[in-house]
């Protein structure tokens, strides 16, 4: 739902990365995207194209998404399970004492530029 906001924050971060690494153009960015961030990849890519092309640094830059599966750990039985499939209740012991282990990432992984 908030893909455009995420893209604006990405561009801000990438501008800092460019200054730190003396890049004048960026051609490719890879993003680790957790499965339960609520971000829709198609919308994110559309927003990226729209916003990136309005900057000198990122004009025409490709965005590649790597999806990170969501995994939850159960504090009662210690086992892990797939979050999207089973939700909040542990499928092994039916406990609600569960915590998301990963799947909420929105991380710029690599940047290619010159």
């Amino acid at each position: 739902m908030h893909e455009l906001g995420i893209v604006f924050h990405m561009i801000e971060t990438l501008e800092t990365v460019a200054v730190q690494n003396e890049l004048t153009t960026i051609a490719r960015v890879t993003l680790d995207l957790g499965e339960v961030t609520g971000i829709l990849p198609d919308y994110l890519l559309d927003c990226w194209r729209w916003a990136a092309d309005r900057t000198e640094l990122l004009h025409g830059a490709d965005l590649e998404l790597h999806q990170i599966p969501a995994v939850t750990v159960c504090n009662a039985c210690g086992r892990t399970y797939a979050t999207v499939e089973h939700g909040k209740i542990c499928p092994h012991c039916q406990s609600p004492e569960t915590v998301l282990l990963c799947g909420n990432e929105i991380e710029i992984a690599t940047v290619e530029g010159r």
Partner: peptide, 14 residues
């Protein structure tokens, strides 16, 4: 030359 940089930064860190 093209540089490839490992960033691994949370987009919302800023």
């Amino acid at each position: 030359r093209i540089k490839i940089i490992d960033v691994h930064e949370d987009v919302l860190a800023n």
